[in-house]
Design a protein around this nucleic acid. Structure first.
Lengths: 221, 221
DNA sequence: TCAATTCCTGACCGTATGGTCAAGAAGACG
DNA sequence: CGTCTTCTTGACCATACGGTCAGGAATTGA
């Protein structure tokens, strides 16, 4: 299951932790925290269960680490919003980035969603600090764009919710999306269509000009 | 905890089943299937655990019933799409209905979301039949509207996903929404704002005319 | 009033699961 | 080499949790 052939020095630790985290992410995503079994994670990682507990003392420790990793991915996506010159570029790039995350890290997204749905026992503090600050910062940016007449005076907060919800839908509900796609996961072209559709509806919906939308990169390919 | 004072005839069964289902919905929503404990559900319902098993033989039986109930609520919302004369009215009403569900049944929505996220073990068949049929029917309706030039030629499928995702976000992520709202749940006015913002972005985003949007009922109140 | 039926519940059981441990294997390092 | 540290693992707990059961309390219906 695992390619541990190059048993070398103390890379072992990092290697095994990665192996375990990868497996844990998948199992937590599929079964939830309560439904996840350490034995299953161990099997998936190709290690004896006792070995998991050597690296991660408890199930909760392991879970926290998984959530932390996802958090960092989220932060990366959030960054593209920063260096943006206007709504078309900024929001368009943010949608692209979040769609890409949904595609590349569906398991992580699910763990995150489940965490929030269950009342955010682990990330509560983070919601109230980092996320709140980030959100309010972005709201101010959007309000600036509105004042400049570059988009309609819609509620920035609800706009952000819509973007989060829609982009994450493709990860969190990938099973449903697949079922409604004839049982096949979205292929490259379908992902491109999805991105384009989401960007088009959102950008037009907030009053970005058609010209600006058409000028966006990464559109129809 | 429970008002079982009017101990009468065989209403007992219905009364207790409702009590249990209500408690179960909440606990499943908060803890997930795996994390939910029969004892906790029993306590919340105000009944001894053995009594739960009298009405619902197994945890899975109980879970299935909870999911079924939510399914019926979903069907009701889906119905408003039917008797619609056009995109503004039909999609607007559908968004309103789904937002209302998120507000009234957040726990049910979460159970549903978790079920799908975990691979839909219980509702798999339903996804492939009822939902698939309903979705394709709606897609045809929307394509008709597009042919009639009543809205832009956007992908109906991704439009539906966006509506589902966004409206459910307010239920599934209510904890996050609350945290970002200063720790307070949305009040009446804020719910109205949310509905209006979502409808506005979506309807404008798909090319419904401003006049038609403005003519919608239930707008700013 | 007297079965018959339905409901109630404390006590109990078997198993699954998170977690421990002790003994040893495998590198690291001088 | 020899020792020190890190890693590995089968066997083993303790407990929590889903589910059972037997006996009794209500309700029903005649």
């Amino acid at each position: 299951m695992a390619q541990r052939d190059p048993k070398s020095k103390k890379i072992i630790r990092q290697q095994n932790e990665t192996l375990i985290l990868r497996a844990a992410e998948k199992v937590f995503a599929e079964a939830g925290f309560g439904g996840a079994k350490m034995q299953v994670i161990a099997d998936l990682a190709g290690l004896p269960k006792a070995n998991l507990h050597y690296y991660f003392p408890t199930k909760e420790t392991l879970y926290r680490r998984v959530v932390e990793e996802i958090f960092h991915i989220w932060l990366d996506a959030a960054a593209v919003f920063e260096a943006s010159s206007g709504p078309a570029e900024g929001i368009g790039a943010y949608i692209d980035a979040k769609m890409e995350i949904s595609r590349r890290h569906p398991a992580g997204s699910k763990v995150w969603a489940a965490e929030v749905m269950h009342g955010a026992p682990v990330i509560q503090e983070w919601l109230e600090t980092t996320l709140d600050t980030w959100t309010n910062g972005r709201i101010e940016v959007i309000e600036g764009w509105i004042r400049q007449g570059r988009m309609d005076p819609i509620s920035p907060r609800h706009l952000l919710y819509m973007i989060w919800a829609t982009t994450q839908h493709y990860a969190d509900f990938d099973h449903q999306v697949t079922a409604l796609n004839g049982g096949r996961a979205l292929n490259d072209a379908e992902w491109t269509d999805a991105k384009a559709a989401v960007k088009r509806i959102v950008l037009k919906g907030i009053g970005v000009s058609s010209a600006e939308i058409a000028a966006l990169p990464d559109g129809p390919d």
